[in-house]
């Protein structure tokens, strides 16, 4: 009953519209003025689709030589049968020790960077050193940030030698770029009120830093450093690929020899490590705020 009545209503309306007498001039004018945005949208969509297809095929990608079915079968079999003797090998070459080493690389590197970034942060903050010096600091930080971690590790390996120490140093240097930038932002967003108040009670510059600036920025600094620690745990797994310590080395060996069960063991370790580190750091960060 309801449906019929409604359909009847629609019918009535539609017949009205087809008979153009019933549409007022204002409405038909407005109808003709409607923005033709769909043309613009269509053009953008077509361009993006075309760009994706073109880029994909212009890169000379050939997939005909790959026997996906067999490869995925091996992958699946390897991943469902991780090399447990490798996974639970408690010696220095085993997965547990290397995982611990990876975390240690990330932690010591982050700690180093978190400390070293403090002077850089202050020297880049506009409200501390002024606009011009801040620009120089920013440029320096961009250079540090854009220097790819792997390449930095390759350079440091020649100087410090292979091993986890290089990894920690790489992370320590590379992380300064982002940490100092975010530190500087925290300093710039600081409330100037407490410092003014300290000025008013006659505090000197060090007293102002200790009682006016540090209490405000330290929680921000810690939160940023913890966030960077999350990133660095992931980075530390990569650095092993260039022999800078950690889980990366067994991963790349396993990959080069198609040893899926060893790779599976390493991946399990990476997943567990990252999930635990993420959970701890997000818990700590929520406590800081």
């Amino acid at each position: 009953m309801f449906k019929n009545k409604e359909q009847h209503q629609i019918k009535k309306q539609v017949t009205q519209l087809n008979d153009s007498m019933h549409v007022s001039k204002d409405v038909s004018d407005k109808y003709n003025q409607r923005p033709k945005k769909w043309i613009y949208n269509m053009v953008i969509t077509v361009i993006i689709i075309f760009a994706v297809i073109w880029t994909f095929f212009s890169s000379g990608i050939t997939i005909r030589n790959v026997d996906f079915a067999t490869q995925f079968y091996y992958l699946w079999r390897g991943f469902t049968h991780p090399n447990t003797s490798f996974l639970f090998d408690w010696s220095k070459g085993g997965v547990p020790y290397l995982t611990l080493e990876t975390v240690a690389i990330a932690f010591s590197g982050t700690f180093l960077a978190a400390v070293l970034a403090i002077p850089f942060g202050f020297l880049t903050a506009k409200n501390v050193v002024g606009k011009h010096i801040s620009k120089i600091g920013e440029l320096l930080l961009i250079i540090i940030r854009t220097f790819p971690e792997i390449v930095l590790a390759l350079v440091l390996i020649r100087v410090v030698g292979m091993g986890a120490t290089t990894g920690a140093l790489t992370i320590g240097i590379h992380s300064i770029g982002m940490l100092a930038k975010l530190y500087a932002e925290a300093i710039e967003n600081m409330d100037p009120g407490p410092i003014e108040a300290l000025d008013a009670v006659g505090a000197n510059i060090w007293q102002k830093i200790k009682y006016g600036i540090f209490p405000q920025v330290i929680p921000d600094f810690l939160s940023v450093a913890l966030y960077r620690f999350d990133i660095n745990v992931r980075s530390a797994t990569i650095l092993g690929m260039v022999s800078a310590g950690g889980l990366g080395a067994p991963l790349i060996f396993a990959s080069q020899s198609w040893n899926w069960s060893n790779m599976s063991a390493v991946l399990i370790a990476i997943i567990i490590m990252v999930i635990i580190v993420d959970a701890i750091s997000s818990k700590l960060r929520s406590k800081l705020i």
């Binding site: 309306q13 539609v14 519209l17 087809n18 549409v23 007022s24 204002d26 409405v27 038909s28 407005k30 109808y31 003025q33 409607r34 923005p35």
Partner: peptide, 21 residues
Amino acid sequence: EEDKIMALEALEKMGILDKAY
């Protein structure tokens, strides 16, 4: 088209046709 006209007419009924776009 009917729907588009209906939408505009609804705006006309409410007296805000000029704000349509």
